[in-house]
Design a binder for these strands. Structure first.
Lengths: 159, 159
DNA sequence: ATATGTGCAAATTTTTTGCACGTAA
DNA sequence: TTACGTGCAAAAAATTTGCACATAT
């Protein structure tokens, strides 16, 4: 889909909820759209955005990310590196995507799967819990790290 | 299993790796074993542990948790409340347990499932990624919150 | 016009670190 | 005995907040 179309959708979502579509909010969303890396920290976004608007404050970035998260435009993630990371929430994806986190080099690889519906109804029955979203993270070793450290290919008992 | 047996296993694991089994480390592990709540923050543990040993420092709690996590005795979790939470890693559980996080009241419910092995081999084939561990979090609404807010029972499109 | 949002600086909260002293093995 | 661990206080890092000013609707 075209980026400008995505931006219009985001704009619409923000306005639907009676929030203002400010320059700052637009620039921050733009940063997500133009970034090659899609797991951005508040600081990352702050740095990217300063090029476009040097006066923007880090607090605004945090406040925007909080708003976007509450509107479900963005997902807040934690890869265990001490800061939160954010990614655009792609509602068009029919299969949710998840993260493979390499314990060797720290790289985060995306991966799609659609086991959700099945588990969803199972849980609804068992716990009465109504699932709206989920996050799945895998920890392990990527191909490259396994090549460099053959012991990383062993099947560990923990799982 | 008896708690004293569990403690002995933990002690053994720590010593196997040439770390000392100090009073502080024991008290902290004891806190996990005796706590009713099993998702503890560093601060929670600090408070619990001060009863037993008032001189213990918060830094020691953090350092111990880091060590325990690296030895896989403990898992570090993030429920999005701004602080890390830790739980004893129960290797005896053949089916891993996961978390249902209620967006209404914040309650965290545990839930077991064993879909892992299946996904594990699928990923190994597809990405060459060797999975050692994984974390699965579900967000939604618990029974009680659905009772109070019928709209929480609606099936949301995001998943 | 005005409710909502922003920038700035300060405050808060969580986690980490340096160093002199203590202790398990 | 001695390498490893701890307490304390200070630092660092991440996030939040208060307030006067700015702006989208």
């Amino acid at each position: 889909m075209k980026k400008s179309t995505v931006m219009n959708t985001l704009k619409k979502r923000i306005r639907e909820h009676k929030y203002k579509f400010t320059t700052q909010r637009q620039i921050i969303l733009q940063a997500f759209l133009s970034s090659k890396e899609n797991h951005l920290s508040a600081e990352d976004i702050y740095e990217m955005v300063r090029g476009e608007n040097p006066d923007i404050g880090l607090a605004t970035v945090y406040r925007s990310l909080e708003l976007f998260t509450s509107l479900d435009l963005v997902k807040k993630l934690d890869f265990g590196d001490g800061r939160s990371r954010y990614e655009l929430n792609d509602h068009n994806l029919s299969h949710s995507h998840h993260h493979l986190i390499c314990l060797g080099c720290g790289r985060v690889i995306e991966f799609t799967s659609d086991f959700a519906e099945e588990i969803r109804s199972r849980i609804k029955k068992k716990n009465g819990f109504n699932i709206v979203d989920y996050q799945l993270k895998f920890y392990g070793y990527c191909k490259d790290c396994q090549k460099q450290h053959p012991e990383y290919s062993e099947k560990e008992p923990q799982i």
